[in-house]
Nucleic acid binder design. Structure first.
Lengths: 135, 135
DNA sequence: CTACATTTGCATCATTGTTGCATTTGAATC
DNA sequence: GATTCAAATGCAACAATGATGCAAATGTAG
């Protein structure tokens, strides 16, 4: 499935910025940050355009945002996540890369009476295998 | 234990800003954001002073930061968390309050070979009991 | 009380999220 | 292919947060 297909499917206009974002995420096959995506895109888009493109793509559930912490947000294709929607994410403190941990589903946390959950995020921070070897 | 005791214990200078921050967190007995703490403090401290005070208090493990998402950080007394260090946190999308869910420990996620974890955060977002009634 | 290291306040900068508005562009229609 | 109009973009501008350098103020040990 090509970038244009994602846009057509949701009746979104085909703009180079949107296509580029989707293409970059597809090519990487692991979650990328906004700056990582920007670096790989030829077009020098305005920051606001980028911001709004992500917002649009997220609203149409084409991309999915993974919030690592208060200064790190990564984007992945929503399709890649829909099968096992709620799984933990591993963030490497060394190389800043994010891995989806699909081997285990997120535990269901029992909440106090009257509380209802809409979403649960599990973020594991540590050192990945390739960084372990580097050090 | 009073604010001064926490500072003395770590041989930190007793400044009104630090004392105020600790006092405010103790009084609230639930995690507070920087702005919530600022609002409750009489002294109109510089933003940088605030920022560095939190940093110092966190480095000495007097306070603990709970990162909810890319734009929400809450602070709690580290002592309140040490007993059951790793537990999930519930964030109410309505009133923005945070609750420690101490009834369940955080699950241990099996990681791929070579990966090592330093910390795991579990954030559950939803609606708390008191907000449910309000709506 | 003095001396000195620490802390504070201020200036300044970077990044991210956000909105308003004029201009440009995509795509449906003629 | 040209016309048209809603949608997307670029720009200006602002807020919040994180961060650093430096001179002035402050805490505390002696």
């Amino acid at each position: 499935m090509k970038p244009i297909d994602y846009l057509n499917e949701h009746k979104l206009k085909r703009t180079s910025c949107r296509e580029g974002i989707i293409q970059t995420i597809i090519s990487a096959n692991h979650p990328l940050s906004e700056s990582e995506i920007r670096e790989q895109l030829a077009g020098n888009y305005d920051r606001t355009t980028f911001y709004r493109s992500f917002k649009t793509l997220e609203e149409h559930q084409i991309v999915h945002r993974i919030i690592i912490d208060n200064q790190t947000v990564k984007y992945a294709l929503a399709k890649q996540l829909s099968a096992e929607e709620h799984h933990p994410h591993f963030f490497c403190n060394c190389c800043q890369s994010v891995q989806c941990i699909t081997t285990v589903p997120v535990q269901k946390i029992p909440l106090p009476d009257g509380y209802s959950a809409s979403e649960t995020s599990v973020i594991i921070k540590g050192i990945c295998a390739s960084c372990k070897d580097k050090i």
